[in-house]
Amino acid sequence: MPKLLHKEKLADNITLIKVAAPRIAKNAQPGQFVVLRVSDKGERVPLTIAETDPAKGEVTIIFQKVGATTKVLDTMKVGDELVNLLGPLGAPAHIKKLGTVVVIGGGVGIAEILPAIKAYRAVGNKVITIIGARCTDLLILKDKIEKESDELHIITDDGSCGRKGFVSDILKEMIEGNVKMDLVFAVGPVPMMEVISNITKPLNLKTIVSLNPIMLDATGMCGVCRVIVGGHTKFGCVDGPEFDGHLVDFVDLKNRLSTYKTEEKQAEEHVCKILGVKI
């Protein structure tokens, strides 16, 4: 079973782990994710692959403690084993040389943009990165992202790091300032991705978003992750997770994401009772 090799607290609620998974490390490409379980009775939870080291056979996962599984995962120690780890899943990102790519990460989405920044830059794009979080304590991977990007803008809701405001404010200013942009790539909370897609749509500025619908098997078998893209039903787990933000039906996505709200709370309470931790 895949062993935890490294664990690091990145922010109050955000943890980085490295797991031994040679086959996944070998075949993973930017944009892909894994599914893991933390106990025999556990749910299958999808998490983005933040980084891989094929030589060492390691996969890096960054997660936010937001539900039952991530709560349990956060209690695991180096040397502990995951019950299951499946991947790499999802369609790899289409990385092409386009010119200037603006990469936007919000909250824990910042972890997910790192492979994209590296990949877009590796094929010769200029990468302008915008990262944002509620406050400086939640702003992760700042140094690493700064190193990998040609240009970095930081913004926080409360102004405790960088400017005060939202990532979309910076994007808007760049548009007003006629900054040349060939692609926008955004990962973060659904409302953030929606706002960004709405800003770029009238300009016909191609925008890719990475969606996080509810998943179960995550291999294309159950269809719970279905999203409407350009009027067609697509499966987030195999057709995605990356889609054209101008075509995504965000209202439908938000509705489907709320399906198990009550049960998610219940599962978390159950797990916290067992672990003896506070919710």
Binding site: L216, E263, E269
Partner: peptide, 8 residues
Amino acid sequence: KFPEYMTP
């Protein structure tokens, strides 16, 4: 068997 089993 939810929530003993975590998938609702």
